[in-house]
Amino acid sequence: MEKFEKIHGVAAPMPLINIDTDMIIPKVHLKTIKRSGLGVVLFDEMRYHEDGSENEDFVLNKPAYRNAEILVAGDNFGCGSSREHAPWAIKDFGIKVVISTSFADIFFNNCFKNGILPIVVSPEEHETLMADAQKGENARMTVDLENQEITTSDGEVIKFDVDPHKKHCLLNGLDDIGLTMEKAEYIDRFESQAVQSRPWV
């Protein structure tokens, strides 16, 4: 995984709450056996009309937001299924940070596995960031994971929390499986004890 660098980019506003994984990527696009190339169908049913033409009212189709790297979204973003196609599509589009007041659990975890930083902020901070995102292309936000800071286009600084282990992995582009395999002796020991204590498993 590539290392997560400091981001200075356009933030797209999506104030709708409960944006679910079916909205992020409808099931017709889950039939792939690859991880790549899903950016073009991100938010498919909102982004395109039924004839395949672009819905120009949709935020990511507006000239200001076509190259957005940050998404400021309404509460409970990513609810629904466990499909990792949702973060794959977001990443492939070029979005590296999603900011909301809350995220669904599985989606939240899936983001970190794919080099995307989901940030939880308070409702007040969310209002500030949403207003900043609505200013368009000239209002660029900065997201600094190292120092856990978002800086609005006006220079207002908002601090955020992140799990230290997840931060470390993102900043260093570390692969979880490799890290866990270094703990193989613990797994071996657990398994040999479990064979005694719970042999039916």
């Binding site: 991880r35 499909r83 599985i106 975890n109 899936n110 979880d176 499986i177 866990t180 797994i187 398994e191």
Partner: peptide, 19 residues
């Protein structure tokens, strides 16, 4: 019992554990 994403599926296949 809970759902996981594909990266975690790979993690469980390889290590029989989850972080």
């Amino acid at each position: 019992a809970h759902g996981i994403g594909t990266s975690e599926v790979e993690h469980v296949l390889a290590t029989q554990t989850l972080i």
